[in-house]
C-alpha cells in the first residue's frame, strides 16, 4: 500500500516536471536560442527514462541544459555600429537552465551557488526553476549580480502551461534596437509616450524583457484583420 502511494506521488510529480521542462525549453527557443526539435518536444516516456531515479522519483539534479543563441538572435541583440564603436559585440550569450533540487524555500546559499556557476562558466543568462519560492534575501542576490549575469527564477507551478499558447494571449515580438529607433522615428514619439508593460508581467518574464525594450503585440481584429500595438517594458 505504502509503495503504491509513493509511486503514484512520484508519477504525478514527474509529469508535472515534464510539463515544466517542456515549457522552459519552449521559452528558451522562443527567446531565440538554438534547440533541437526533439529536445523541445520530448515525450513523457523519454523524459521518464532520462530524468528519474530507479524508484521512479524525479531527479532534478540531472535536469539542466545550456543553449547557444541563434544567428538571428545574435544579430538582434547587437547594438548598431557607431563611429566610436565600429564593431559592436553582441549582448546575447549562452544561457544556462537548471532545476533546483532544493525542496525548502531557496536561501542565499543556493542562489549564490547558482550565480557562481553561471559566471564561472561564462553564461550570459541563467534560469533557475524552483519548487519553492525564493527568500527575500535570495531575491536581493539576483538584483545585486544583475549587471554581470542575467538571472531569472521561475516556479515550477508557473511553468506547467505555456501561457503563449493560450487562445487569448496575442503574439508578442521583441523589437531590436534599430527597430525600436525606427518605430519612434516613424511615429515621432518619445520612449515615454509608448504604452507600457511591466517587467513582472507574465509575458515579459517569459520573453525575458529588460527595461527599455519594446515589444510588438499583434492582435487579430474583426475590422482590421491584424492590429499591431507596441509596449515599452518598464
Amino acid at each position: 500500500m505504502e509503495e503504491e502511494t509513493n509511486s503514484s506521488i512520484f508519477a504525478r510529480e514527474t509529469s508535472r516536471l515534464w510539463r515544466a521542462w517542456r515549457t522552459v525549453h519552449e521559452m528558451v527557443q522562443d527567446r531565440g536560442y538554438e534547440l533541437a526539435e526533439d529536445e523541445v518536444k520530448i515525450s513523457l516516456q523519454r523524459f521518464r527514462d532520462e530524468y528519474t531515479n530507479e524508484d521512479g522519483s524525479p531527479n532534478r539534479a540531472k535536469m539542466q541544459f545550456s543553449a547557444r543563441p541563434s544567428e538571428a538572435m545574435i544579430k538582434k541583440y547587437t547594438p548598431p555600429a557607431t563611429a566610436s564603436n565600429p564593431n559592436p559585440t553582441t549582448e546575447a550569450g549562452t544561457i544556462w537552465v537548471e532545476f533546483c533540487p532544493e525542496q525548502s524555500s531557496i536561501g542565499i546559499g543556493v542562489m549564490k551557488k547558482f550565480v557562481g556557476h553561471c559566471s564561472a562558466n561564462n553564461f550570459k543568462a541563467g534560469i533557475l526553476v524552483t519548487a519553492m519560492p525564493l527568500s527575500s534575501q535570495a531575491r536581493k542576490v539576483i538584483t545585486v549580480t544583475q549587471q554581470y549575469t542575467q538571472i531569472e527564477c521561475f516556479l515550477e507551478e508557473d511553468l506547467l502551461v505555456n501561457i503563449t499558447h493560450h487562445d487569448l494571449v496575442p503574439k508578442h515580438i521583441v523589437l531590436s534596437r534599430e527597430e525600436k529607433i525606427a518605430l519612434l522615428k516613424r511615429y515621432r514619439l518619445k520612449e515615454t509616450q509608448l504604452p507600457r508593460i511591466l517587467q513582472k508581467d507574465p509575458i515579459a518574464r517569459y520573453l525575458g524583457l529588460k527595461r527599455g525594450q519594446v515589444v510588438k503585440i499583434i492582435r487579430t481584429s474583426e475590422t482590421a484583420g491584424r492590429y499591431a500595438s507596441y509596449r515599452l517594458c518598464v
Partner: peptide, 11 residues
C-alpha cells in the same frame, strides 16, 4: 524577519 526566513531556509 528576513534573517529568520533565511535561517529557516537552511533548516
Amino acid at each position: 524577519q528576513d534573517l529568520i526566513e533565511e535561517r529557516n531556509c537552511l533548516g
